[in-house]
Write a protein that binds this DNA or RNA. Structure first.
Lengths: 340, 340
DNA sequence: CGAAAAGACCAAAGCGCTTTGGAAGACTCT
DNA sequence: AGAGTCTTCCAAAGCGCTTTGGTCTTTTCG
């Protein structure tokens, strides 16, 4: 059932039927009702390919997915996607993932914009002076950055959490508890979130006249194994930290294992606070010693990003407003006063 | 730069240019070279919307993504996606995720087929007599099932691993080691993979005149917490198992925690074998006691599914061939002879 | 009461591609 | 030389929708 058939059946022109369906004003309300009714009864659904060709609108939002045998997609992605998908569904948006060579995403961005394959895109895991942000911005497609870049000479719309504030608070708490030697087990420090977290820890230390030693900060891909290695390295050195802040729950698993292997205890020998993105399948309260966390649901962020994308597509949102969400500090058993 | 401009510039008809570009035979090789050359030089890329409208081909593969606030996307998804994306990239395919109400995916399947939004779809986490498989099959869109359904009265193409064989082997090993009371901590037993795994364990036990007690099998969403709960429940009962087979590495984390909480040891008091889908961020060899596993890379499966989808789209693959991959049993420190 | 404005509808021109159904010229064959 | 065959190219008809630029009635109002 296409527009031609439907309009013929109603003895109306395609123009009028199309307008009736799309809510244009220049059609009699009585006629509109007839049209809508008939469309529903016959299950008429405009062909999206045709509509897209005519309007340029696709009803899709895009994401360039870096791939390659050596490239691992972040497990956070799936939670983000849950939120994004949930919102997208309610607004009849689909998400198209365009796989790209991790080292050349630009080509793919250009392609999806040139081809008008999507109405908007989002960018995640931004880095300082992120080229993707600059690119997408000049290409003129609506977009939202999940996270933040830095050192760009223009503003852009983003949704981020207060990583610096979160880790500042975490470190401050540890310092208040008497800890003097803090360490940070961080994610890849080429990404802004990691830089912000480190900044937060340093700022808290500096406020008490302390500093983060060069050998007290690790920056690695967020795997259990790297958490373990980092913790071993930190805890086996002469001025081992008495407290660790950690960028991920998965790394924290490794930290806990290292602590156990070394015959130490949490929080007796080591206090630990990790960032929790809120996974359904791994919860900080279920660690053998319940884990203190800085908590922020990445799923909510996904929903928010989708919401803003939808708003930008429909022109409801304009400008370059960045929003930063506060992060909860949730104290559980894994922190205690510094050992004597 | 569109076809019209390009053909005008070459003083050829759109027909000829189109044919030259798409490799049709009825065009002079000399002319073809000129056209291809000019197209490249001017960066001509056919507009996919237009091409789609004309041909019906989209260059996209679809996946219906169940969403909802109470619905968690499986973290395995991201690994599967890595493989799928990697292959898709090399074949210039995009992936479109269509979010759907988890309780009504049918509408979405019908929509994406009716609208010709994708060239093929894949289905994951199938259940016995899965309605999606039946639906997609009658809708007539090319598809591949990742996993298997059962009890359908027709054949369909799938790629699955030998879940039954894997868990059969795991259980057999444990029995050979003298274990008599085995337990199974399984995933959601409404899904076929879980059913097959249970079947494998039962078969191995039966071969030695043993059985899987009703209270020795748990079927839950695969979270750390559920792994913990299940293990507690199993290990605290009077005829506690001396060996556990477990459907996921994440659940195994919980099992290990439970064992520790109960003051037991692996493999002294309990042998443990879990299924490993091969995550980059959590490796069985890094468990405090290296974990024995049945191993199968879900990422490879993703690549294979993409490959088959591409083949079906281009007509290279037809028919309903199902393929079943063998699973490796990797023995590490977490298994030992049954306690005396 | 007549002119201007508003209301309701339509024919046709795109959007940019593929594909059908020729047509013109060059070649082969008898 | 005329008939048939290739080879090579083209004009034009879709694909199914939106939107422009009208036309023909009605209504409004000085």
């Amino acid at each position: 059932m296409n527009l031609k058939q439907l309009s013929h059946m109603l003895a109306l022109s395609q123009t009028t039927v199309s307008r009736a369906l799309n809510g244009y004003p220049e059609v009699n309300e009585e006629t509109r009702r007839r049209v809508i009714d008939a469309a529903k009864r016959h299950g008429y659904r405009p062909n999206p390919s045709a509509r897209r060709l005519a309007t340029g609108k696709t009803g899709m939002i895009g994401y360039v997915l870096p791939t390659g045998t050596a490239v691992d997609i972040d497990p956070h992605f799936v939670e983000f996607l849950s939120g994004l998908g949930d919102y997208a569904r309610s607004h009849e948006l689909d998400l198209v993932l365009s796989p790209a060579d991790a080292d050349d995403q630009e080509t793919t961005y250009r392609r999806i914009v040139a081809n008008r394959q999507v109405d908007a895109v989002y960018i995640s895991s931004p880095r300082p002076a992120d080229r993707r942000v600059a690119l997408v911005s000049t290409l003129g497609i609506p977009f939202i950055v999940h996270g933040r870049s830095e050192g760009l000479d223009f503003d852009y719309p983003f949704t981020d959490i207060d990583n610096e504030g979160a880790f500042h608070e975490a470190a401050r708490l540890l310092i208040q508890l008497g800890h003097r030697r803090l360490a940070l087990i961080n994610g890849d420090d080429r990404e802004t979130f990691a830089i912000h977290r480190e900044r937060g820890v340093r700022r808290a230390l500096a406020a008490s006249g302390l500093a983060l030693g060069e050998d007290h900060v690790c920056s690695l891909a967020m795997t259990e194994e790297n958490g373990y290695r980092a913790a071993r390295r930190l805890l086996e050195q002469s001025d081992a930290p008495t407290a660790i802040t950690c960028s991920s729950l998965i790394m924290a698993l490794g930290v806990v294992r290292a602590v156990r292997d070394l015959g130490l205890t949490i929080p007796g020998d080591l206090s630990l606070i990790a960032h929790d993105d809120v996974f359904p399948w791994l919860k900080p309260e279920n660690f053998s010693v319940p884990l203190s966390t800085t908590r922020s649901s990445i799923r909510l962020a996904g929903a928010r990003v989708a919401e803003r994308l939808a708003a930008r597509i429909s022109g409801l949102e304009v400008g370059a407003r960045g929003e930063v969400w506060p992060v909860d500090l949730v104290v559980r058993g894994s922190v205690a006063g510094a050992p004597a």
